[in-house]
Nucleic acid binder design. Structure first.
Lengths: 143, 143
DNA sequence: TAGGATTTGTACGTATGTATT
DNA sequence: GAATACATACGTACAAATCCT
């Protein structure tokens, strides 16, 4: 598979598709490091700008995590199962940057917002929590 | 408030903070159009690159939606309340680009992934759904 | 309807800073 | 200290969609 600068689809999205496919096919495995940006620059003859944009797309999708030294395929973090009582409401949204820092969440990870019947709310990183509806009133965790 | 190119915090994050504060304070109201990119370029003497990066941050946080003609503060879409039976599990993650297109979701909006006890899964846009734990087995919607 | 103005999208370049190896 | 690789930030240019006259 190659990249066509004259295609309808932008170069950076084509590269994002290509890398995403490699992740989903298992060619890039969880925890595995991706090639450096310049690797893709050389391999496909595109600008580093386009490569970085592609990487940013995948980071926004939570598929990879990027550190100063490189990007890796995200590993499925072990999640706690949180039981919620009947009547409790759950939704999700992306955290703002201050929230991300405060809660120690990686980029591309949403937060689960849990609103108890009392009105109290909790925010949990979605990559570390699974919500389970219970019959009884108890908000314990069951790892 | 101004932007200091010599500050520890990058210019684009400073601008994102600034715009975010205006949204949260109500100075920019839901549905209201943000000034054009070049407005910020001129106002703060920074590059369009930095402005675009700031806008991208806020879009990733789901605070604004961007069309070709400009960005607007996201309006709270009316969400359906989805009841889930005991034992049902819920988590959230960001959709991939194909998923976004398929489900017709805006950027910066996570999906709720609902796994029934049977193993069946549903994916719902988090900006249009609120999950509510019920005592009884029923997955009806209650608007 | 035509055409220009506006605004965002994409894509290239360069340079410098900073953290890690 | 050097090499590597990502982060930031400036610039340019053109394309494409939308809006307005």
């Amino acid at each position: 598979m190659t990249i066509d600068p004259n295609a309808d689809r932008p170069v950076y999205k084509q590269l994002a598709d290509l890398i995403r496919a490699r992740i989903e096919s298992g060619e890039y495995r969880p925890g595995q490091r991706l090639p450096a940006e310049n690797h893709y620059v050389a391999e496909y003859g595109i600008s580093r700008d386009s490569v970085r944009r592609a990487i940013a797309v995948l980071r926004g999708e939570g598929l990879i995590v990027t550190k100063l030294r490189g990007s890796r395929v995200r590993e499925a973090g072990d999640a706690d199962t949180i039981s919620i009582a009947p009547g409790t409401q759950v939704t999700a949204r992306m955290p703002t940057e201050p929230e991300r820092k405060q809660l120690g969440i990686a980029e591309g990870v949403p937060i689960l917002v849990i609103t108890e019947t009392h009105g109290e709310t909790r925010k949990l990183p979605a990559d570390r929590a699974i919500i389970e509806a219970s019959t009884e009133a108890s908000t314990d965790r069951a790892g």
